[in-house]
Nucleic acid binder design. Structure first.
Lengths: 229, 229
DNA sequence: ACTATGTTTTGGTCCGACCAAAACACAGGT
DNA sequence: ACCTGTGTTTTGGTCGGACCAAAACATAGT
């Protein structure tokens, strides 16, 4: 069987894709949509709710829903709830972190093999910013993420930066509890430098190992905090 | 601000997590939920809709919603709509396929480095089944997927088989159009064998390259079909 | 024990209403 | 002309009641 709201969802999706409902602009008012599609408000609201959970519109209570053309980032927001459930289960965070190790290890290897001049330059400046921030822990955290982010960019595939965003949003809550002293930052900086050097030397194995080591050390630091939880 | 249905969603999620609403069993009737939580039917229905889109319950029109404890597979169903949107955009399928190449390349490398006896045995039997099916194209397709699936299993992380499922469900529609003659199957079988041999030899570079070549060839075959679309 | 039939329950849809917050319009002061 | 405060309208969120058709249940007949 078919629900009336499903038809409406489909029609609105078309209008979003065709640009009739412009991106980042509010959807027409519910009562206008009723007239527009000859549907009851119940159906209209149900359709909007579905679209919101699909990530095609963003709803803030009491505000007009805003049209959002989907990108790989929307996939994250749509999944974040489920992921949070999974992370709360035993081993959840571990699995996610291990997957990150797998990905970033491969990213380091890939960078060593395929990074071009611009990529290297980006890495270099990210590393420099990282160094500058050693005494400023919050900023170090920021530059730390950005250094890793450059690696996700090097594959030149929009899916990967989205994955990076995912790891950040799902893992950094657990991360926050980590003790972050300047001497600790220094350790991480050196790990980043080692990765950078290996990429510069075009040594994939070394890059991979350096990344692996870096992430393993970081894991040791947070591991205990997580298991308690 | 806060919507009444959000509270309800949260409460129902708790009851699902705690097992009070059992997994794979139907949710109480809407009118019972009204009494249970002192909410109007509007709110109850909105909450159910949200839960459905989150993937925590499965709704079939006219049937009671069925509770589904989330796993990494749920993430796929929740995202499939958005992903389909993204795939319909220019370059969408290409990006997804490239990401698959990246992952599987790394999986092959990982297998060469870390596969244990059982893993090798699984690969071997998957390869054998693949060989048996060379003249039976639909079955070859099946065993083809399963061979790749073994690689996703070797990392021993539940996230990866889920990713594999994702690639299958999102890429195989485009795949179906591919011409699949027995001689073609033979080519793919040999590619699989090359990957297997490299893993057996514990040669990560060779495994990686073999996988890369295999996927590149497959891509060439479907590429044209996709660009027309 | 099984099938056919009748009754109750339940999900899907619609309508009308009310509230409070947001959006808008307008008048007054600078 | 520009900001500001105020009053009006619009709009999203919630509620209650109603109806239909399909599903679930119960009951009688074979």
């Amino acid at each position: 069987m078919r629900r009336a709201s499903d038809d409406l969802v489909a029609e609105i999706e078309v209008r979003i894709a065709s640009g009739q409902f412009e991106n980042n602009k509010p959807l027409p008012a519910e009562r206008d949509l009723m007239d527009m599609f000859g549907a009851s408000r119940t159906v209209v609201r149900e359709a909007i709710s579905t679209l919101a959970n699909r990530g095609l519109v963003e709803t803030k209570p009491r505000f007009r829903p805003v049209v959002k053309k989907p990108d790989y980032g929307t996939v994250l927001t749509a999944t974040s709830n489920i992921i949070e459930h999974l992370l709360s289960e035993p081993g959840g965070v571990t699995d996610l972190y291990r997957s990150r190790e797998f990905i970033e290890r491969s990213l380091a290897r890939h960078a060593a093999l395929h990074a071009n001049k611009d990529d290297i330059a980006d890495l270099k400046s990210a590393l420099a910013a990282n160094y500058e921030a050693i005494d400023d822990t919050p900023r170090f955290f920021q530059t730390d993420m950005e250094f890793h982010g450059v690696l996700y960019k090097i594959v030149r595939n929009p899916i990967f930066p989205a994955i990076h965003e995912g790891y950040l949003s799902w893992l950094s809550p657990s991360w926050g509890k980590m003790k972050r002293a300047p001497d600790h930052n220094l350790v991480n900086y050196h790990a980043h430098k080692k990765i950078y050097d290996a990429i510069l030397e075009r040594d994939p194995v070394q890059a991979e190992n350096a990344m692996d080591e870096h992430l393993a050390v970081a894991w040791e630091v947070v591991k205990d905090t997580l298991e308690n939880k």
